[in-house]
Design a protein around this nucleic acid. Sequence first.
DNA 1: GCGGGACTTGACATCGTGTCAATCTAACTC
DNA 2: GAGTTAGATTGACACGATGTCAAGTCCCGC
Lengths: 199, 199
Amino acid sequence: MSSPALDTRSRILDAACRALGSGEAAPEIRMADIAKAAGVSRQALYLHFKNRADLLIATVRHVDIAADTDAVLAESRGATGPRRLSAWIAAWGGYIETVYPYAKALMAMYDDDPDAAAAWDDRMHAMREGCAAAVEALVRADRLTPDLTPDLATDLLFALLSIRMWEVLTKEQGWPIERYIAEMTKLAHARLVVAAAPV
Amino acid sequence: MSSPALDTRSRILDAACRALGSGEAAPEIRMADIAKAAGVSRQALYLHFKNRADLLIATVRHVDIAADTDAVLAESRGATGPRRLSAWIAAWGGYIETVYPYAKALMAMYDDDPDAAAAWDDRMHAMREGCAAAVEALVRADRLTPDLTPDLATDLLFALLSIRMWEVLTKEQGWPIERYIAEMTKLAHARLVVAAAPV
DNA sequence: GCGGGACTTGACATCGTGTCAATCTAACTC
DNA sequence: GAGTTAGATTGACACGATGTCAAGTCCCGC
């Protein structure tokens, strides 16, 4: 059933996937390595992908078919008010952890490759919507700090939850993911959420 | 007085400096470009620097002889309590702005070159001390939020003020530096500082 | 058995880094 | 003034990576 072409293509994607996943920094991953890992000639890669960036982008897409941003976003859609903010932060924090190596690869290609940049921007757009929705939930519950506009609050939350920030805290400072989520939640609440008005 | 060697060396550094400063992404800057800009042969670069990384690191050092981290740190040393935190954030925010392109270059080399990594770590260590000192000022004034240890607070502040975070807010989201400083100040205060105890 | 698509092999162009050897030049020394 | 020498230049080359090309091989379906 599976044509041999498809088989090879996915063998390549799997190999690239493993390569990206295994801690190795993205720029270090060579076409020859991927080919070898896939048990395929280097040239075969160019039969299926137009170049290195194309392959890596396809790899990233391949990975998060399973764990998609939208699903994460949905996960927090139930809650309202400040609890929605918490849910969003927790869901996103967990998501980054699984997706990080691939996101990093995309980031690394951002400057060189316009397609990679587009793929990245796409992802970040979805992520920003999650932030905006969480802020909107605060607004609806009348719990957004008065000196913040929804836009500004969204910017701030987006920045706090950026992969860059995650990287600093968990990779550079060695925070476990639980602490990351706990502290980010407290931080966001401290700045964005105001106490409920007395009835 | 100035030997011709020194003269050439600084012409190279100036050229590299201009190249790094002019928006160009660091990986794009080629040895040949720098040589051309310095009005010198490509090989001359290798007479003065052992390789590309060495040159770029020297360039970064060259740049912030004037605007040094320690000076920035000193700038905030006067204030006490929460005002010290504000002073530190303002001073650091302004400093990043001038130093950003060079810092970025160093960051970009981090994975490849151990010397670049060391230079970077050195800088970040100094920066972390600034954060620790600001937190210490809060502790002394009895104004650190009780559910934060000084270490955790320092981690958090360090992450908030990281170049990465600055990048997201000012470069990606287009915040003017004033807004960055204002919002970071509010954010840090919201999370780290507790109201003064009543007398 | 034959045609054609998928893959391989090996060669090659290109680009950037880094090395090397030969040459040039200007300044310093005797 | 001649010789030495450090600093530069020129041009060539090795290396490693990407990407291209052409010819050949293998296997599958008709």
